[in-house]
């Protein structure tokens, strides 16, 4: 399992080295200026902000594509011929996606903290408190990836859905994600747990900030339950019915 995870992470890194280089460059641009005075300093800060946001999105998007489009690569025959259970195969894809999401969020937060030092006056590093807000996001993004991966496996597992796999992947994902999110919001509203997001400029991605909806326990448990369910059913389909040709 760890070897499989190691090679999946290596595969992601080798395919997306440009994102890692971009992230490093963005952090460097944000760390270099001593203050926000002068054209060069402002240019670097602006560049760090724009490129940081682009590379953050690229990280989330490539994690998403990595999780469900692996079966469209030529290497799928190598991966499917490994003596590894389908449960481990699916779990490792989701874990890799979750790890990339986590690192993308940590990167964005650290970038904000680096840029934020010009208003606060001191360097800040990510703390455990910041990570609380991130974990809820990682669970949510992994739920999205898990749902699309499940829909992809499902659409390649039945004769009827194999005729238009892309269409069925999109349909099943939308229905699944829409239903779960709407039900979660309704349950939270009924149980008085839903609080409208408050937009704050100084504590983005923290428990108190505008992403606090993901710091509640209920949605995280719902998303985790669905990740588990999709993993179990998806692995079974991958083992017994899935085929790409």
């Amino acid at each position: 399992m760890f070897s499989l995870l190691k090679w999946n992470i290596t595969d992601y890194i080798k395919r997306n080295t440009w994102i890692l280089l971009g992230i490093a460059a963005s952090l460097l641009c944000a760390a270099l200026p001593r203050n926000s005075v002068g054209l060069l300093n402002n240019l670097l800060i602006g560049l760090a902000s724009i490129s940081g946001f682009i590379f953050f999105q690229a990280g989330i998007l490539t994690a998403f594509l990595f999780v469900f489009r692996w079966a469209e690569n030529d290497s799928v025959e190598l991966e499917l011929s490994l003596p590894v259970s389908s449960r481990k195969q699916v779990a490792v894809k989701l874990l890799t996606g979750a790890l990339v999401n986590f690192l993308s969020l940590v990167f964005l937060l650290q970038l904000f903290l680096l840029i934020g030092r010009f208003s606060s006056g001191s360097y800040q590093w990510i703390s455990g408190e910041h990570l609380k807000g991130i974990l809820g996001w990682v669970v949510f993004l992994t739920f999205l990836e898990s749902s699309v991966l499940f829909a992809y496996i499902f659409s390649h597992s039945y004769r009827m859905t194999r005729r238009a796999p892309d269409l069925f992947t999109a349909l099943v994902s939308l229905v699944l994600i829409g239903t779960v999110v709407v039900c979660t919001v309704v349950i939270m509203a009924v149980t008085n747990q839903l609080i409208a997001p408050t937009f704050s400029t100084d504590s983005i991605l923290t428990v108190e900030g505008n992403l606090q909806v993901f710091s509640f326990t209920l949605p995280n448990w719902v998303f985790l339950s669905f990740i588990l369910l999709e993993w179990l059913v998806g692995s079974r389909l991958l083992q017994n019915r899935f085929q790409t040709s």
Binding site: D11, K14, D74, S75, E77, L78, S81, L82, P83
Partner: peptide, 20 residues
């Protein structure tokens, strides 16, 4: 079953290795 793959070495008709 999936363990049987441990006893089978497969060479497909195309390059199935990761391109990188």
């Amino acid at each position: 079953n999936h363990n049987s793959r441990q006893e089978i070495a497969y060479l497909p008709d195309h390059n199935h290795l990761f391109k990188w």
